[in-house]
Write a protein that binds this DNA or RNA. Structure first.
Lengths: 337, 337
DNA sequence: TGACATTATGACACCGGTGTCAGGAATTTA
DNA sequence: TAAATTCCTGACACCGGTGTCATAATGTCA
């Protein structure tokens, strides 16, 4: 079984390799008869073009890179799933590149990545989408990129996000409507734009009900489970204890739940807990977490799809979309007694 | 800023491109003086070889594919982490390829993958490592592969695993030593070789203590949280109720815990629960799950490292290694009252 | 110091595609 | 029906590396 290349197809079909290339790329100026003949040989020889050779000729790799630095494994896999769907549909492949967000080394790290892999484009997942230096670096290198779940910017970048502020507003409304007035809040990682957004939504809801904002109820987390434990400790030690806790993601909410349970508190009877993201853990624990579901896969899929079409046709308009999130109520929140 | 290629380096250094290539690949037969000169130009021009061109010339892609079909997102990310470490050290990149294990389509799917990405090698994660047809297909295509966490085979494949049978034995011993005699068992997915191994370890421990095996205590799961819920229901409905449950992974164990808690059972006072894998959820819930920790990252890293060196030097011996797992006791198991 | 082995280097083809351009065939227009 | 236009097609260079082989330079030994 020897290799089938464009040359073997060409000689088999009795045409030049250029003509085969034309058929391959659906270029015009090929007679119907010739096209048929070549296509038949494709089938007969079971030919698939070599993407590496194609890449060399066109200076493309047909690979998209996915950057992330996120403690939530479920979030990462959701991002990957969405990105993979888009790649599959466009015959691209996905290269994953976890790397540390902080530090001087980041830009060097990315530069190295670009030099060794010749990516055609990059998806920036939180918090990378909000890092202006990185964006301008990529621009200077002429590497197309797309931002997922990052802040809305008035620029020409591809960006797909969901409305974190609104989601946080709705879940706080849900708690307030259940009668809660003393609602603690655990912030996310300061590098993530979602952190500010969710905090804003929380405050907007309080304000719209005339509930005074109390900063003693606010803890600084960083989206990790561990930070949730620390924050939970401070919150549960408060006196009077808040009747509800809204954590900026489900891992931190799960940490609050664990600590509360350890302390013999009944959830939601003694304290209501709400999270954000609808991570798997939200339904794997008892009581299940009330949370906000975001279409992470869909966001990433759209972003990558746009990125790929931008690579093919760079003159397009910026694609900036905000998708809907939705409230999911489970057992961890209930009306105040 | 125009592109730096081997040609620009060559003309800059006043040597032929072949000599540059020799320096690049640390080939012999280059005088020290020439080598120095070329290396200096590398630095001066900030040259990095184009992996695509190199790939075309050598018919390699410098990409390893990672196959998986696993409901556990944390397992997937651990596998990815290990694989990425090995890739990084060897200037390889990782392509992820989730796909359905079942069905005729699998081989076609993989064939397609190989044709469109020209992978240099493939890591087979559970359950793919145990699928003989796939292994022989890859052999026929001459694609090197490595098996992670799969059954021990008397063949020449690269394989890194941990001892599932022994792990299951130890955790069952732990329960028995706590005084449990009626220990329910939830099996994993039948396609995974670990499923049989863990079951074997469970039975060996029972037998070694003269506890009669009771198949009414055994439920068929499939490693998913959902299957754990179903199994838990059957187990908790048994009368007399077993005093302990050993689930073949932590997700199913978490499901048992959730259902037990919903039913007002105290864990571990009323029933002890043990899992397997030391997934994040094992420590994110209360009570934390007693479980078996396996070095998944390390297994995958070793497998990929071996795979890459095998690609470079195909004449090596089969590399078959079994790594140690270890028991982690948390709050979900306690002595029988 | 001459014969021979070894080392260093470059010319050139090649990997498998795509881009450019020239020229013949087919079609349209006058 | 001749001229002008458009459509097809292939020759050839090129993308940026590596492999082969010939030859020049150097080293070794008698």
């Amino acid at each position: 079984m020897k290799k089938v290349t464009i040359n073997s197809v060409a000689s088999h079909a009795g045409v030049s390799k250029k003509t085969v290339s034309r058929v391959l790329n659906n270029e015009p100026n090929v007679s119907a008869a010739t096209r048929e003949k070549v296509l038949a040989v494709f089938k007969e020889l079971d030919y698939t073009p070599n993407p590496i050779a194609r890449g060399l000729a066109q200076n493309r790799s047909f690979i998209i890179g996915c950057l992330y630095d996120n403690p939530s494994k479920s979030y990462i896999t959701r991002v990957q799933t969405g990105a993979l769907e888009a790649c599959k549909e466009n015959n691209y492949n996905l290269l994953i590149h976890p790397c540390e967000f902080r530090g001087e080394a980041l830009i060097n790290n990315i530069e190295q990545l670009l030099q060794t892999s010749r990516l055609d484009g990059i998806v920036l997942t939180p918090p990378f989408g909000d890092f202006a230096e990185l964006a301008s670096f990529l621009k200077s290198k002429k590497i197309p990129y797309a931002r997922v779940a990052s802040a809305l910017l008035q620029d020409d970048s591809i960006s797909v996000r969901s409305n974190d502020e609104q989601g946080a507003f709705e879940i706080t409304e849900h708690l307030i409507n259940l009668g809660h007035k003393s609602i603690a809040f655990i912030k996310g990682h300061p590098d993530h734009s979602a952190t500010q957004q969710r905090f804003k939504g929380y405050r907007r809801s309080l304000a719209s009900h005339g509930i005074e904002f109390d900063e003693r109820l606010v803890e600084e987390g960083n989206f990790s489970y561990h930070s949730g434990v620390d924050s939970a400790r401070s919150i549960l030690d408060l006196s009077p204890r808040p009747t509800a806790v809204f954590a900026s993601n489900d891992y931190m909410a799960a940490a609050v739940l664990k600590l509360a349970t350890q302390r013999q508190l009944k959830v939601p009877d003694d304290i209501s807990i709400a999270g954000f993201d609808n991570a798997p853990i939200a339904r794997h624990i008892w009581p299940g977490l009330t949370t906000i579901a975001q279409p992470v896969e869909e966001m990433t899929k759209q972003a990558v799809t746009q990125l790929i079409s931008h690579i093919a046709q760079p003159q397009e308009q910026p694609y900036q979309v905000t998708l809907e999130s939705r409230l999911i109520t489970r057992e961890s929140t209930s009306a105040i007694k």
